[in-house]
């Protein structure tokens, strides 16, 4: 039995009781790498859930300085770190939660197309958790170009949004949003809704990495936490989509 598996057997015994997560799946998760843009209110809980589930590597990009207004939701940050770069704080917290051998590459800049292309060669999955469409489109495009899955996760007030993209098979973010919507920077936000959204994305990411296909590919998941209403809307692929019309399909 490999050392990796022995460690996984002890720490992850309870999650391997799940019907879709056996020892082989756990090994796959432990060998996987995920690229995330932003690890704030949504991406932070997302990254933490991936770390504690045993993922091999998290790569993230998160610019900016920690401010007082971040502390109500950015659980990876250090309240003693006000005025300092967010990225190193998040990286330090994640490392505490990962298994032995867990790697974190955290960058204190906004992700660029070059960053995304470089890291999608190494990573198995990309997740957009940024409050800007620019970063989400960029990651969507890079994942598709690499033939890798992309998960888009966002929230606004009480609304939750998730889209899981299967390259070359399902609709992508640009199929859903052919033009960038009206957007307000100071969005209303509660940590609990952020964390819920991030953990939905983490759940789907873990399912993909474990090798199960039990993922709502190409469906726009919208959850209104005020009305307690969940809708699943299949999104048609656009034949002329610049991002996914010629995307490579992912390897099984």
């Amino acid at each position: 039995m490999s050392t990796l598996l022995m460690e996984a057997t002890d720490r992850y015994r309870r999650q391997k009781l799940l019907p879709w997560l056996d020892e082989e799946s756990q090994e796959r998760i432990c060998r996987s790498s995920v690229l995330i843009t932003r690890v704030g209110g949504l991406g932070g809980p997302l990254a933490q859930s991936l770390a504690v589930a045993g993922i091999g590597q998290v790569v993230f990009f998160h610019e900016g300085i920690l401010g007082e207004e971040d502390l109500h939701r950015m659980v990876l940050m250090d309240p003693q770190g006000l005025g300092e770069d967010r990225a190193p704080q998040a990286a330090d917290t994640l490392r505490k939660w990962g298994r032995p051998g867990f790697r974190v590459n955290g960058f204190a800049n906004r992700i660029t197309a070059q960053d995304a292309a470089r890291w999608m060669r190494e990573c198995d999955l990309a997740i957009g958790a940024a409050p800007t469409y620019e970063e989400r489109f960029l990651l969507n495009d890079a994942a598709l170009a690499a033939g890798k899955p992309y998960i888009d996760a966002a929230m606004y007030g009480g609304e939750v949004h998730i889209l899981c993209v299967d390259p070359g098979q399902s609709a992508c973010l640009r199929c859903l949003l052919p033009e960038e919507p009206p957007w307000r920077h100071d969005f209303p936000v509660l940590g609990a809704v952020c964390a819920m959204t991030g953990n939905w994305a983490a759940l789907f990411a873990l399912r993909i990495l474990a090798g199960t296909n039990q993922v709502p590919w190409g469906e726009y998941l919208h959850f209104d936490t005020d009305a307690l209403k969940l809708t699943r809307t299949p999104i048609p692929r656009r034949a002329d989509c610049a991002a996914c019309a010629n995307a490579r399909r992912r390897r099984p």
């Binding site: 209110g41 989400r136 966002a154 929230m155 809708t231 809307t233």
Partner: peptide, 10 residues
């Protein structure tokens, strides 16, 4: 008929 605006925030 539901009209839905995808959101941005986190």
């Amino acid at each position: 008929i539901r009209l839905m605006l995808p959101v941005a925030g986190g």
